[in-house]
Amino acid sequence: MTGPTAPPAPPGTGPYGVGIGWRPEIAGFVAGLPGLRFVEVVAETVAPAGALPDGLADLRGRGVTVVPHGVKLSLGGAEPVDPARVAHLAGVATALDAPLVSEHIAFVRAGGVEAGHLLPLPRSREAVAAVVANVRRTQAELPVPLALEPIAALFDWPDDELDEADFLTEILDATGALLLLDVANVHANARNRGGDPLALLDRLPLERVAYVHVAGGAERAGFYHDTHTDPVPAEVLDLVGALCARHRPPALLLERDGHYPPAAELRGELDALATAAGYPVVT
């Protein structure tokens, strides 16, 4: 499916330009994007010792960079990260010849109970120490750099000692990790928890951004939900423009996780992202 104009990137280069989250349901669509140079795959869905899913193997064959994106490591958990989960993430990075991996500043389980999704941490010194310890444990086993993604949350802990920018910067400074900035999360947090999204962009270490996430969401019962199953709202695209005006990230990735729209609609979202960021269209 490679178009005649697609210059294949050499294997394992850093994320560049506009990418999309690879999911089995849209593997055919992704394979048909001629200018695509990077995708992300949910790390927990890849078996490092087994065969890669067909679509992913084809993309790697084209020289498309594939970044493993972990969702269940629970780096923000008070307990140490599970060594088996760290080993799995490292194995996936090797199997995909990935230039980096990413995970979240969040916890997903506590006391042996799974939350089922990413939960926010208190912005406290104690939480910073827990995240930093887990990130260091993880980095010690990874063959490549780690990028950390701040999450979207609907609520705050009652005892925040730091604001979002200081909380994130302390973690990044203490670990040397890269930043995976999700502008939809920035929008969602500002909308639901208050704060000025542009002021946050002004205070984050944007030179540390490895790539950016962009996703859709929806208003429901007074909250903005970062659903990944709805279109990207104009406010989020505007934030992409504002981010790029400050410091253009090397790459931006569209996340879509369900209710997949017709291909033309998805292509339109990728094109809008390319336009907002000033990168070549990949469609």
Binding site: G77, A78, E79, A110, G111, P122, A130
Partner: peptide
């Protein structure tokens, strides 16, 4: 932090 995370998840 462990106890408070457990209480929140519960």
């Amino acid at each position: 932090l462990a106890d408070r995370q457990s209480a929140l998840v519960a």
